[in-house]
Every structure is written in structure tokens, then in C-alpha cells.
Design a protein around this nucleic acid. Structure first.
Length: 889
DNA sequence: CATATCACG
DNA sequence: ACGTACGTGATATGC
């Protein structure tokens, strides 16, 4: 007789995780859930002697349940990294046990188990389902027993249909009705509010099913009747959500679930890596020989901590350096310009050396510093842009960086979240030996804490080793996806260029900012008094909540827009309210000036280094989904310019040397030029070939008038249409922006597409291409995946379609200015110019230039920018200069 | 720690 | 019919 054991892997891993005390191995990897899972497996194997065994896992984030109900499992807090990092370990362990595992994208573990129990019923096999979830009780039958974990994992409570009858007075299938009525907070299944287990059971004993309860809702009394009648739909939906789907199209069959026992050496090796010493003894595995062939696993690493006094270790490091394949440098702190670098690990295939930074600075480690600084010593690392800055501030130059795992991960998927860009996350993605997450080792936020040296070094060593393996996989991936050149010829060199700009910093004159701050303070104070007077009370104007109450309740102004939490008071709303009350202009002005004061006056002053007077931003190269850079600590890409009051801030950005100039060059209409090129639209190309004013040209085509008859209003509207085109246009967005009706907006768009038919074709084609390939690309083959382009949800899909239209445009523009930056850096070096590139603001480059180079740079910078790449239309860069960034306009 | 707002391209 | 313009980061407020 066959005996199947079917385990709900996710549920048991969860139970084990919360039931077991924390447990970590030497490199900081959490193993408590793996341990709990293992003890449960051992117990089942011993007591049940199964002929077949299977562990099912949930796969993917979106299941068919989400299609009907977006909030399914919505309220659930996300899996802690301490647990998620253990899933790969559990899966590896199951393989060592010889136990098969199924998962299928779009289905949950209980659906897979439900399908298999149906097969057990049909084939007359005996099955035991093991889970922590009572939902599973619906699967019980003559053949199927359900075991639910009780406190911990190894103790279970078994339910046959008779036992379910005894305990609940229900047949197994009625468990679904039970949940339909009472809901399940952990899965965010609503049920009927106020109905708990007791009430639900009473109703079911009386009526038998959700449908019957709803039909007889008239018989109920008082509050309960109201609740049931109000939430009929919720109950029906909840029942649907609680129903385990038993027709999963499984790719594997019963044959593959056969269990033939484990091989002792294999399991011994797995336990040894996990450091499960007690289990090894319990199973008498300690003496089992270890098959040493195959890759070295993370826990096998030979880790040498190098100290200046340890001659053996020094010799070993010196020997290993030529064979080093990867480096990991632990930088603590978000801002690399003020970070602590604790230690560096270098990994070769047979050993990893860890050097604390203090040791690295000693005389005995001079050879190591030379190696770091050597251009010939190739280095593969992680987040080396940050590392370079951090080390530079500690007086350690680093050269010869040839590959960066984080940068590669970004190119391979620029939308990957921050956690998917960590070493731990990447190891999971590529199926490499697990590495603990930074969060699980260090904690986060206020709880951040370095572990003791030994654990810290083991962790850093594990990361260095992982970098080596990851880089191998990624090089292939980059090649396969056609991004090899983009990586090696552009992004990797750019990383060094950025580091140079950031270390140089930009000079900021604190006295200019302070002066502006003093003026602002007076005006803000004055406005504050005026606002209090007009409101007839004092309140916190900076609080949207309090402001909303004053405007819409006290003063009774019409509500134009709501936010999730209350009234909207954003600038659009306030502008609409201006005709109703004199307080509005003052509030708008107050907002504008207090923003300047807090973000730009106070914010920037804090960022000026007292000894140099420089501000050092940090460009992030792995954040923006389109390929753009972003700027942090402080953000120098959003310094005010549009309004004169704010623009004054730019007067503080001055050259760092006396007599030098600030020089700025920006691309003119780069995105529309890119669009002209990639769409091949005849009219758009002609416009740029003749260097026409593009908004006037658009107005003339859209409104059907001669260019000289285009008035300023027509031009303004055409400009908005051009913006819309670049963003992936919709009539709603345009109507909102222009304050016209949707119908009128739709007409503008249609007229635009009649005039620029090539653009219409591009928009259609790119969306089709995204649907076909699952991604779009820029001119330099930068990729962005758009899985939601196939979503059935209108919103998600529309968003993906607009992104498909926008990303090749914005992304190609980003490619181009990056090319210009790398070229510009080279030109400055080869021509031995003293001028320095300081800032990039998406379509603008800012330099500081000595007077005697002004003439050269006025020509060189736009030349390099315009020739960065050859398109079917010319690129144009406008250059200007002055004594401050303000004057370079 | 999330939300609303606003600065830039 | 659905309901949003694309991409970022910093700040203050309030739970």
C-alpha cells in the first residue's frame, strides 16, 4: 500500500521559524527554520515510513486568487529576511534528503497538495497532509488524513473526517464555509465582520453552507442580520478564496514523489555545512566521509584574518593576492563621504583573507595597499563606486576595478528592488549558496549593531566568496542580453568618473546661503502672521491636516480633491481655490519660501564641509529604472531654477579656485531629438534638421496655422502635448495639465498623431514589442522589463504601456549624456586641462574652468556632448558661464 | 515609518 | 468603464 506524505513547505517553514529560538551558523546565516524543518522531517520519516514524499512551495507573488481580489494576503506583513534567506537552505536540504519538491508559478502550496490528495482519493493511496494551516482540513477524506502542527513543529494533531466531525460538527468541505463566514486575518480574507468561530459554527450547524446562511439571513436577528446582509458579497468571495484549487496542471507526477531514503554521506555533508552537530550525532553521521569534489561551499571557506603581527597570515595573503578573484569591502553608513569602512575581504578559489581597515593602514600591509592601488591587479567587487569613495576618504586609493556585481545586477534588471540588489538577494536569484542578509546580521535603523569581530569577518568573507560566483554568472547574462558593451564601455568607466566628481565636490559659499536664509526668515514670519490673521486662528501651516481643517471646515472653501487620509491641499488645489479667499496666495507663498528655507538653506548649509567649503553629493548609478543617475546627500539635481526666489540659491555655487568660472552646458530638447531618431518620424526629423523651435513647429502642425501665426498660448499648449508624448500620452493626463476637457485633449492628441504619423507608429510598435519580448530597450541596449504589460488590471497595464513608450526615450537620453561624461573625462585628461567636471543634472553638465581654459571649454564641452553619439538628427548643446552656477544660464 | 508636498529634469 | 501624465530625493508631520 502506498503511503504519501505531502508537506506544505511554506507553512511549515513559517511555523518552524517562529517556534525555534534564533540560530545562526558561523557566517551569520540564520538556520533555525531549517533546523525545525529538519526535526519534523526526521520524525515523519521515522514514524510514518512513507513510500512517497513531497514538499510543496508557493511560487511567485501573484496567484490566480489575486485576479479576483487584489487585496488577497494584502494585510500580511512581509516575510522577514531572516526567514526568506532560509528557503534556499531548506530546498537544498530537501535535495540532500532525496525528497522531491514541487512548485508552480501562480499556485500556492495548498493548491498543489489539494491536487495530489484528489489523486490519492482517486488512486486509493493513503496520504498524510502536514501543514500549519487549518484550511487544509477541507482535504480530509477516507484516504487523506490532515496533520496540523501544534505548538512548535514536531507535534501534530491528526484529523480524519471523523475527528473533524467530532471537533467541529462539520464535514471536511464545510471548513470552506466556516472560513467564508469568519474570514482569516492572516490571509486578509474578510469574511463577515463580527462573526467568529462560535457564531459561524452555529450558523453552519443550522443551515449547512454559506449560501444557505445568506438565503436564510431573514431568520437572523438584530445586528447579526444587518451584518450578514451587508456583507453577503464578502462572504461569497471569502468562501471562494478559502477554497483550495484541486486541478493544478502539475508538471510532475506521482512517480517523481517516490521516496527511497537518503544517502548518508550526502546528508552528512548538508548537516555539516549547516553546522547541525547534534543532528549529525543523532543520526550517527559524524564519521561519514565528505565528497570533496564539486564547488567549494560557503561554509567550507578557509578564512584567514590578517593582522600586522601574524607573519604566517601576511605570507599567506601575499601569496594569495595574484590569485584573488573578488573583493568585498564592508562600508558602514549610508553616505559614503562620511562612512566607516570596517574590513576588506579578498577571495581566491581556496582561501579568503580578511583585513580590518586599521590593520590595512599599518606598515606591514604596505604590499596590500599597493595591490589595492594597482591598475594591473584586476578587481571584481560589489558596490565599488561607494567603496572607492569610502576608501578614498580613509586615504586608500583603489584602482583596477573591472567588474561590479551590483552594477551588473542593475543593468540586468534595473527595476530590481534594493533587497534584490544585495549579495544575499542575488545569491538566492542565481541559486548560489545562501549568504545572510545585511539586515539579519546588522539589524536596521536604530537597532544597527556590528557583530563581534569573528562573526563579522566570517560574514564579510562569505560575501567576498559570493561576489566571485555571482560575477561568473552575470558575465554570461550580460553577454546573452547584449549588454556587454554597455557595461564595459559605459557604466563601468562611468563609475570612476562619478567618483572623481563626487570627491572633488562643488564649492558652496555659506555666506550667500545664510544671507538668503535671513531674507527668507523675515518673509516667512510676515506671511505666517498674515495667514493666522486671515484664518482667525493660529495653527501649523506646515501640517496638511491642520491646513485642511482651516480651509475646508473653518473657512468653508470647496473641497477639490481628496487624499487617502483627508483633504488634498497641494499647489494645484490651492490655485483653484485662489478666487475664493485672500488667504490662498499667502499660503502658496509660505509653502514656496518655507520649502526653500528648510530644504535648500538649512539643508545645504548642513552639507558644506567646514574645512573645504565643498559639498559632496553621491550619485547613485543603480537606482533609476530608466538608466538615469540619481543624486543624494544632498540631492544636487533638484536645486531650484524655475522661480526666481529659489534660483537665487544657485548664486552660492561658485568655483573652488579664485578667478575660475562656472560653465554649464545643457542638451537642447534631447528627448524629442531622441524620439525623432527612434521613431524616424519625417516631420519631427525635418524640424530638428532645420533647428526649428520644436514647440512652435508642433503648434503650427497641430493647430494648422503657419509658424509665424502661432501665438504664445498655442505654443504653451503644444509644449504640453510634447511633454505628454514623451511621458506616454493620455487624454486624461493632458487635460489635467492644460486645464481643458478630456475631449479637447483627445483632439489635440489625435491632431498631433495625424501630423506626426511616425510617432504614432513608434508608440504602437513599442507597446507591441514590449508585449512580445517582455521588455523594452534603449539605443545602447539598456533593458527594462515590463511584466505588467500583460496584466488584466487596466491600471497596471496602462502604466506599463506608458512606461514602454517613455523608457526608450528617457533611457536613451540618459545613455547619451553618460557617453558624453566618459568622453569628457578622457578629453580633460588627454588634453591635460585643469578644468573639472562637477555635476550632472540629467541633460546638463556643470564644470569649473580656469580663465585661460574658458575659450577651449566653451567649444570643447558642447562639441563632446553633441558628438557623443550620431543620430539621424543633430544633437545640440547650449553653453554658458559666469561667476556662479546662477550666472551660468 | 508612512504620507503629503514640492524641488528638479 | 476603468483613472494617470515619466523619472527622482528631502522635508515635516503625525500615527
Amino acid at each position: 500500500m502506498e503511503k504519501w506524505i505531502l508537506i506544505d513547505g511554506n507553512s511549515i517553514a513559517n511555523r518552524a521559524f517562529y517556534a525555534m529560538p534564533p540560530l545562526t551558523n558561523a557566517s551569520g546565516l540564520h538556520t533555525n527554520a531549517v533546523y525545525g524543518f529538519t526535526t519534523m522531517l526526521l520524525k515523519l520519516l521515522e514514524e510514518e515510513k512513507p513510500t512517497h514524499m513531497l514538499v510543496a512551495f508557493d511560487a511567485g507573488k501573484v496567484t490566480f486568487r489575486h485576479e479576483g481580489y487584489g487585496d488577497y494576503k494584502g494585510g500580511r506583513q512581509k516575510t522577514p529576511s531572516e526567514l526568506s534567506e532560509q528557503f534556499p537552505l531548506i530546498k537544498e536540504l530537501l535535495t540532500s534528503f532525496g525528497i522531491s519538491q514541487f512548485e508552480l508559478s501562480g499556485y500556492e502550496a495548498d493548491d498543489i497538495i489539494g491536487t495530489l490528495t484528489r489523486m490519492a482519493d482517486e488512486q486509493g493511496a493513503e496520504a498524510l497532509v502536514v501543514s500549519g494551516d487549518k484550511d487544509m482540513l477541507q482535504l480530509a477524506s477516507d484516504k487523506v488524513t490532515v496533520a496540523i502542527t501544534r505548538k512548535g513543529v514536531s507535534e501534530v494533531e491528526r484529523y480524519s473526517p471523523a475527528e473533524i466531525q467530532e471537533k467541529y460538527g462539520l464535514v471536511p468541505l464545510q471548513i470552506i464555509d466556516l472560513k467564508g463566514l469568519m474570514g482569516d486575518t492572516s490571509d486578509n480574507i474578510p469574511g463577515i465582520p463580527g462573526v467568529g468561530e462560535k457564531t459561524a459554527l452555529k450558523m453552519l450547524h443550522e443551515y449547512g453552507s454559506v449560501e444557505q446562511v445568506l438565503e436564510h439571513s431573514g431568520d437572523l436577528k438584530g445586528k447579526m442580520k444587518e451584518k450578514v446582509e451587508q456583507h453577503k458579497d464578502d462572504a461569497i468571495m471569502s468562501k471562494k478564496l478559502a477554497t483550495i484549487f484541486r486541478e493544478v496542471p502539475l508538471e510532475q507526477g506521482v512517480e517523481e514523489m517516490k521516496y527511497n531514503g537518503y544517502e548518508k554521506p550526502v546528508l552528512a555533508e548538508a548537516f555539516r555545512k549547516l553546522e547541525f552537530k547534534s543532528l549529525m550525532e543523532r543520526l550517527d553521521l559524524t564519521g561519514e566521509a565528505v565528497g570533496a569534489e564539486g564547488a567549494v561551499q560557503a561554509a567550507d571557506l578557509v578564512v584567514v584574518t590578517v593582522t600586522a603581527g601574524d607573519d604566517d597570515a601576511l605570507a599567506s595573503l601575499s601569496c594569495a593576492l595574484p590569485k584573488v578573484e573578488s573583493i568585498y569591502c564592508e562600508v558602514i553608513g549610508e553616505n559614503p563621504h562620511q562612512s566607516e569602512t570596517v574590513a576588506i575581504a579578498v577571495a581566491s578559489p581556496d582561501a579568503i583573507h580578511v583585513i580590518s581597515l586599521d590593520e590595512a593602514k599599518t606598515d606591514a600591509l604596505g604590499f596590500f595597499r599597493d595591490w589595492l592601488a594597482s591598475t594591473d591587479a584586476a578587481k571584481t567587487g560589489f558596490d565599488m563606486h561607494r567603496v572607492e569613495l569610502s576608501l578614498a576618504w580613509h586615504g586608500l586609493p583603489i584602482n583596477g576595478i573591472v567588474f561590479d556585481v551590483q552594477l551588473a545586477a542593475y543593468l540586468l534588471d534595473p527595476t530590481s528592488t534594493e533587497s534584490a540588489q544585495t549579495i544575499s538577494g542575488l545569491c538566492g536569484k542565481y541559486g548560489l549558496p545562501s549568504v545572510a542578509s545585511d539586515e539579519s546580521v546588522f539589524g536596521k535603523g536604530a537597532k544597527f549593531k556590528l557583530p563581534e569581530t569573528e562573526g563579522l569577518h566570517a560574514f564579510i568573507a562569505a560575501k567576498a566568496d559570493a561576489v566571485r560566483r555571482l560575477a561568473d554568472k552575470q558575465r554570461t547574462e550580460l553577454e546573452r542580453s547584449g549588454m556587454y558593451k554597455l557595461y564595459y564601455d559605459l557604466e563601468q568607466p562611468l563609475s570612476r568618473v562619478l567618483a572623481g566628481m563626487e570627491l572633488q565636490g562643488i564649492r558652496a559659499d555659506a555666506s550667500v546661503i545664510e544671507q538668503l536664509g535671513a531674507e527668507l526668515e523675515g518673509r516667512v514670519l510676515e506671511l505666517k502672521g498674515k495667514i493666522y490673521e486671515l484664518a482667525g486662528m493660529e495653527f501649523n501651516i506646515g501640517s496638511p491636516k491642520q491646513l485642511g481643517e482651516v480651509l475646508f471646515e473653518k473657512l468653508g472653501l470647496p473641497v477639490k480633491k481628496k487624499t487617502k487620509t483627508g483633504y488634498s491641499t497641494d499647489a494645484d488645489v490651492l490655485e483653484e481655490l485662489a478666487p475664493y479667499h485672500d488667504i490662498i496666495p499667502s499660503i502658496l507663498m509660505y509653502r514656496q519660501l518655507s520649502k526653500l528655507q528648510s530644504t535648500y538653506v538649512e539643508g545645504l548649509l548642513k552639507e558644506i564641509r567646514p574645512n573645504t567649503g565643498h559639498i559632496h553629493t553621491f550619485y547613485r548609478q543603480t537606482i533609476a529604472a530608466t538608466g538615469r543617475l540619481s543624486s543624494q546627500f544632498p540631492n544636487l539635481q533638484n536645486i531650484p531654477i524655475r522661480l526666481e526666489e529659489g534660483r537665487q540659491i544657485r548664486k552660492a555655487f561658485v568655483p573652488s579656485e579664485p578667478g575660475w568660472y562656472m560653465l554649464a552646458a545643457d542638451y537642447s530638447q534631447i528627448e524629442l531629438r531622441v524620439l525623432a531618431h527612434i521613431s524616424g518620424d519625417h516631420g519631427l526629423k525635418e524640424a530638428f534638421l532645420h533647428d526649428m523651435d520644436i514647440h512652435t513647429k508642433t503648434a503650427s502642425d497641430v493647430f494648422g496655422v503657419r509658424p509665424e501665426d502661432v501665438d504664445s498660448n498655442m505654443r504653451r499648449q503644444a509644449k504640453a502635448v510634447n511633454f505628454g508624448i514623451v511621458y506616454g500620452i493620455s487624454d486624461f493626463g493632458l487635460s489635467n495639465n492644460l486645464g481643458i476637457t478630456r475631449k479637447e485633449a483627445a483632439q489635440f492628441i489625435e491632431q498631433y498623431f495625424v501630423a506626426f504619423q511616425g510617432v504614432r507608429k513608434y508608440m504602437d510598435d513599442i507597446v507591441m514589442q514590449a508585449r512580445r519580448d517582455g521588455y523594452v530597450t534603449t539605443l545602447l541596449e539598456r533593458r527594462r522589463y515590463l511584466p505588467e504589460i500583460k496584466a488584466s488590471n487596466f491600471n497596471l497595464r496602462s502604466f506599463a504601456e506608458r512606461t514602454a513608450m517613455n523608457t526608450p526615450i528617457q533611457g536613451t537620453a540618459a545613455d547619451i549624456i553618460k557617453l558624453a561624461m566618459v568622453k569628457m573625462d578622457q578629453e580633460l585628461r588627454t588634453r591635460e586641462l585643469k578644468s573639472r567636471m562637477l555635476l550632472q543634472v540629467h541633460d546638463e553638465l556643470v564644470f569649473e574652468v580656469p580663465e585661460d581654459e574658458l575659450e577651449i571649454m566653451k567649444k570643447l564641452v558642447p562639441d563632446v556632448m553633441e558628438s557623443a553619439i550620431e543620430l539621424d538628427v543633430p544633437l545640440k548643446a547650449d553653453v554658458s558661464y559666469g561667476h556662479s552656477w546662477y550666472e551660468a544660464k
